[in-house]
């Protein structure tokens, strides 16, 4: 641990402000709470929102896992993990089961989450209605009045153009039957995992200065049409490494001759399965 930093980089007053925003967000599931986002030592778009939320909730006895696109070993994941190891001296892990705080970009781990765990999502654009309505005053009013019918226009447009709902990530959800929420750019494959999850889910958007949350055991419903129900992606292949047919697969190009393989995007899940098979 480096000296010269306050615990988890941010000063105590800032963390207090963040915790207030988080408490409010938990109290109103899916509602976007504004907060005073700080400059962080990494660029916007790399997880400044997530890192601030993590800094506010992490304690000395927490164990942190950071994933980027499901993997623990990519640049963003490694540097954020190291950031907290240095500034807070917390233990880190790559195992989903062992982690108490999981900061994530673009995925929810395949291993089911449990009570007491906190998921922290990095969010680029928190406003689900932005695509339809550029005015912030108007989108706030739409949230206040639960005036969400227009959101289906986007889904309608998908079906009209592609024959099915072609939105595959950042798929809009209704939280607790009340607030429309963007689940951050996770694949819609992960949307069902948010529904009634035993873990606390926190969302931080650093550039847009918004925090929102899904408390444990809250309903999270993906929007759909009666005759075009919500569906997740399916693959014809199994994971080339661990043989899983249930996980989210990444397509990896292996050579210039068109060779490619499908592997689990969740590196911890895949590794664990391979270890079990090896024994």
């Amino acid at each position: 641990m480096s000296t010269g930093y306050n615990f988890a980089y941010l000063d105590e007053q800032t963390k207090r402000m963040l915790r207030r925003a988080i408490l409010k967000a938990v109290a109103i599931p899916g509602y976007q709470v504004p907060f005073g986002s700080r400059e962080m030592p990494l660029p916007y778009g790399w997880g400044t929102g997530g890192i601030q939320v993590t800094a506010a909730v992490i304690g000395a006895d927490d164990r942190l896992k950071v994933i980027d696109q499901g993997a623990d070993d990519t640049t963003n994941a490694v540097s954020i993990r190291r950031f907290f190891a240095r500034t807070a001296g917390v233990a880190t892990t790559e195992k989903t089961r062992e982690a108490t705080v999981i900061q994530t970009r673009h995925r929810i781990p395949e291993t089911p989450l449990s009570e007491g765990q906190i998921m922290v999502y990095q969010v680029p654009i928190p406003e689900p209605l932005r695509w339809l309505e550029p005015r912030e005053t108007e989108t706030r009013k739409m949230h206040a009045l639960a005036d969400y019918g227009a959101m289906h226009v986007k889904l309608y447009e998908d079906i009209a153009r592609f024959g099915h709902i072609a939105t595959t990530y950042d798929y809009p959800v209704l939280v607790g039957g009340r607030y429309l929420m963007r689940p951050s750019p996770i694949p819609k494959f992960d949307n069902p995992k948010m529904d009634n999850s035993p873990a606390l889910q926190l969302f931080g958007a650093g550039r847009e200065k918004r925090i929102y949350a899904v408390p444990p055991y809250t309903s999270v419903k993906s929007l759909d049409f009666e005759d075009h129900p919500f569906e997740v992606q399916r693959w014809d292949q199994a994971c080339a490494l661990c043989g899983s047919t249930e996980s989210f697969l990444d397509e990896v190009v292996t050579d210039d001759q068109g060779g490619r393989m499908y592997v689990c995007s969740d590196s911890d899940y895949c590794g664990e399965r391979r270890q079990e098979q090896g024994q």
Binding site: D147, G149, A150, H152, V153, E157, H228
Partner: peptide, 22 residues
Amino acid sequence: RMGVSAGANVGERLMAVGARHY
């Protein structure tokens, strides 16, 4: 709404009042 098809433009009001059958 100039960004979406003619059908979506006509259907928007229906969706806004709760129609959910494509």
